[in-house]
């Protein structure tokens, strides 16, 4: 039977179902990532972010909530210029964060 519609999927971040393995591993390797205070300076200064929707702040927050879908493609937009690292007030090694997330999400495999 055709209903002409399908049942919408919930768009909430379901922390009971999300697989936190990669998230935990990344935080173990770079604990300083937890110190992000979401100031957005990294995004404000980002060359890629000026031209695309790429936001390192959002990407790593999603990773920390166990949401990985599409993030590798997002991170591939980064040119690794390093300006975000220069402006981060919490001294997060953002280039290491980007490389690590990419590796854990399947890059270089």
């Amino acid at each position: 039977m055709s209903w002409g519609y399908t049942i919408n999927r919930a768009r909430d971040i379901d922390m009971d179902r999300n697989d936190m393995t990669i998230s935990k591993l990344i935080l173990e390797k770079i604990p300083s990532l937890q110190g992000c205070i979401a100031c957005g300076a990294c995004v404000a200064t980002c060359s890629t972010g000026a031209l695309t929707k790429y936001s390192l702040r959002k990407v790593h927050t999603l990773v920390r909530r166990g949401e990985y879908s599409g993030l590798l493609d997002e991170l591939n937009k980064c040119m690794l210029c390093g300006k975000c690292q220069l402006v981060c007030p919490r001294g997060i090694n953002t280039r290491a964060v980007i490389s690590l997330i990419k590796r854990e999400l399947g890059d270089h495999r």
């Binding site: 909430d12 971040i13 922390m15 702040r57 927050t61 909530r65």
Partner: peptide, 15 residues
């Protein structure tokens, strides 16, 4: 519990 993760812009729930 339910909240929004306002830094992502999506609702979030957990037990």
């Amino acid at each position: 519990i339910k909240s929004e993760d306002t830094l992502i812009g999506r609702p979030l729930k957990m037990t």
